[in-house]
Design a protein around this nucleic acid. Structure first.
Lengths: 214, 214
DNA sequence: TATTGGTGGATACACCGTACGGTAGCGAAG
DNA sequence: CTTCGCTACCGTACGGTGTATCCACCAATA
């Protein structure tokens, strides 16, 4: 079996899932495939293009969501699929919004989203559509990015009180105890119990309501 | 004058402004300061902490915005200051949402934002506040990130029709001509004339309206 | 004077992306 | 049958990265 862009992307995704984007190198991908590092450059222009490849593979999975009759259901399905993809491949969130996603499957997802949004009541002309798409994508990018970094820090500190107090704890509790950040302090101590998915859904409908002028 | 975290951060910011985050290395910062590379590690634990330092310097400038009487004016001012800071230091957008911003000035901005939002009519309890803050920050992160990457690609392709057609053009026009992405195609050809700041403001008020339930 | 402690510098290691030269197979042309 | 060009594979090498470690100095103390 002679190697291919698909196999390279699949191997890269496996490694990135395990060790993150920082732990991903051309050499390691090559080793995973049992070839010399330079072989990859027969199929890929440079590492950036390789990342674009990986991103588009993820978009392919996102594009698999069934399209619904209602525009809103369609947008919700795409948004949740995107979030779920980012939770499955946390490195995806690192690339989100970082460079234009122009792969065929990314374009397909963009097309589905734009088509759905254009059927929303609040969106009249093409300018409305551009703005609405911008607002939705901005929220998606930011929300997913935030959730993933939160999950990462939670995992690294362990969420356990002991590890937490040992790592960020000293600095942060000292900061919060200065009394200069009362609202933030209240958020930290009282507001850790919200479910992530529920929050995402809630804020997503909020944004959607804003877009459609509901 | 014996070197300090502030001077290191300032030099790093100068370099990052000129050559981007990728063009930033410990060695170059040290050279800019006229010292050996290892000196920096007397003031900074590792490169990640150095980036956090840079980020907090930017937040210091954002925190300088005057606080207004109305909660909405305050939020708007902070949001626009953040956007402007990211346009002045494009590398800032690369770090936005990537790791928790816990520097003193970042916390100050967070505190000001949270305090203002908590005075909004639609935000009642602490759970509402957490959700509202999440939605606002998500939009901010995503919108700024998107705008900066758009600006970067526009600059790299030149926006001129000639350079555009030469770089992304062939691939993208070929893709769009397949007819599989009609809505996206319409957006690309018809919707390039919107002012970025106006779009940002528009979508920001949309999100804010959604949060406050207006 | 001898010793200590801390400060600044150089060297070194492991790794990174990738440019480049070389070679083995193979179908087509002479 | 030979020879050409072409493609697919391969290894080595270069300049860069973050950072650990050792080392030489120099002021203050005993």
């Amino acid at each position: 079996m002679p190697l291919s862009r698909e196999k390279i992307a699949a191997a890269a995704i496996r490694l990135a899932d395990r060790h993150g984007l920082d732990g991903l190198s051309v050499r390691k991908i090559a080793k995973e495939l049992g070839v010399g590092p330079m072989r990859l450059y027969d199929y890929v222009l440079n590492k950036a293009e390789l990342l674009d490849l990986m991103v588009d593979v993820v978009y392919a999975r996102i594009a698999e969501v069934d399209s619904h009759a209602g525009w809103r259901e369609t947008v919700l399905a795409i948004a949740h699929a995107t979030r779920q993809a980012a939770l499955d491949h946390e490195w995806f969130s690192d690339l989100l919004g970082g460079r234009p996603h122009l792969g065929p499957h990314a374009l397909a997802v963009g097309e589905a989203t734009a088509a759905a949004l254009s059927r929303s009541p609040g969106v009249r002309g093409i300018d409305d559509l551009q703005r609405a798409l911008g607002a939705l994508n901005a929220f998606l990018i930011g929300a997913i990015r935030r959730e993933v970094t939160e999950r990462r820090t939670a995992r690294s500190t362990g969420t356990e009180e002991a590890a937490w107090q040992a790592s960020l704890g000293p600095y942060l509790t000292r900061m919060l105890r200065t009394g200069r950040y009362p609202t933030v302090a209240r958020l930290v101590v009282d507001g850790a119990h919200l479910d992530a998915e529920e929050t995402f859904s809630h804020n997503l409908t909020t944004v959607l309501d804003g877009i459609t002028g509901a």
